[in-house]
Amino acid sequence: MAFVSTVGRLLFASVFLLSAWQEFDEYGSNGGPAAKFLRPKLDVFSGHLLAHTGVELPKQLEIKHLVAAAIVLKGVGGLLFVFGSSFGAVMLLLHQAIATPILYDFYNYDAEKKEFYELFSKFTQNLALFGSLLFYIGMKMSMPNKQLRKRAPKTKTTS
C-alpha cells in the first residue's frame, strides 16, 4: 500500500514538478515567457480586485519575482509532496489558490466566446487539483502519526 501511495503522489506532483522545471529552464533575466503571459493577466486581476474589494496590489511588483516564487512553490512543494509531507501539499495549495483565478480568468469573457470555455475548463481542472490537495491534507491530519501496537499480554509462569 505504501508503494502505491508513493507512486500516486509522484504522478500527482509530476504536473507541478514538470511545470516548475519548464519555467525554470525558460526563466532568463526577465522572467521568461511566463512573465510576458502573466503581466496582462495580473493587470486585469488587479483591476478587478481594486473594483470589488478596494485592495490595491503594489505598483512596484516585479513579475519576474512572482514567477520565481511560483517556481519555488511548485518545485519544492512538489518534491515535499512526493515524500508525503503535508507542508508540501500546503505549498501546492497556496500556489493553486493564487495562480488559478489570475491565470484562468474566464470571468472576463462572454459565455458565448471560445476563450470562455477553454479558460473555464482549465479553471475547473485546477479546482479539482485544489480539492484533491485539500482531501490529502484532511486525510493526513485525521490519521495519527504513529499507530500504537497492542502488546500481547505476557504469560505468567508459576514455579
Rank of each mutant, 00 (worst) to 15 (best):
G88I: 08
F16K: 03
L103M: 15
F37S: 02
K114F: 06
L50V: 04
F135H: 09
L61T: 09
V7G: 03
A35K: 02
R151S: 10
S5D: 11
S86Y: 11
Q96S: 11
V44M: 06
G75M: 09
K36R: 10
V7F: 05
H95W: 08
T155V: 15
A99R: 00
D105R: 11
Q147F: 05
L10W: 09
R151W: 08
K146L: 09
A70W: 01
M143E: 08
G84T: 02
L129T: 03
L127C: 15
L18N: 07
N126F: 10
G47C: 07
L57A: 14
A20I: 04
F130L: 14
L93T: 02
F37Q: 03
L11W: 02
Y107R: 14
K74E: 10
F45R: 05
L50H: 08
M141R: 15
G28I: 05
E62V: 01
N108H: 13
S5V: 08
L73T: 02
D43Y: 00
N108L: 13
I102A: 04
E26D: 14
L94T: 03
P40W: 07
K140L: 07
G8R: 06
F123A: 10
P101F: 14
K36A: 14
V72C: 04
V15Y: 14
K41D: 00
Q96P: 00
G47A: 12
Y109C: 11
F116Y: 07
Q147K: 11
F24G: 06
L92F: 03
A97L: 12
L119Q: 15
G84A: 06
S5A: 13
P144I: 00
Y27N: 01
Y109E: 13
L42M: 11
R9N: 05
S5P: 00
R151E: 10
G88T: 03
E112D: 11
L129P: 03
S85Y: 07
K74Q: 10
F12T: 01
P33T: 06
G8S: 12
L57M: 15
H48R: 12
G78E: 08
E118F: 12
K122G: 11
L50S: 13
V44F: 05
P33L: 08
D105L: 10
S142P: 00
G54C: 02
L73Q: 01
L17Q: 00
M91N: 04
Y109R: 14
K146T: 05
G32N: 05
K150I: 06
L119A: 12
F16A: 09
Q96M: 14
V55K: 10
Q147I: 10
T157S: 12
A51S: 13
K140H: 13
E115I: 11
L42A: 04
H65N: 11
L57R: 14
S46Q: 09
V55N: 09
F45C: 07
V90P: 03
P33N: 11
L127D: 07
T157M: 13
T157H: 06
F37R: 00
K122N: 15
L79C: 12
V67R: 02
V67H: 01
F130R: 03
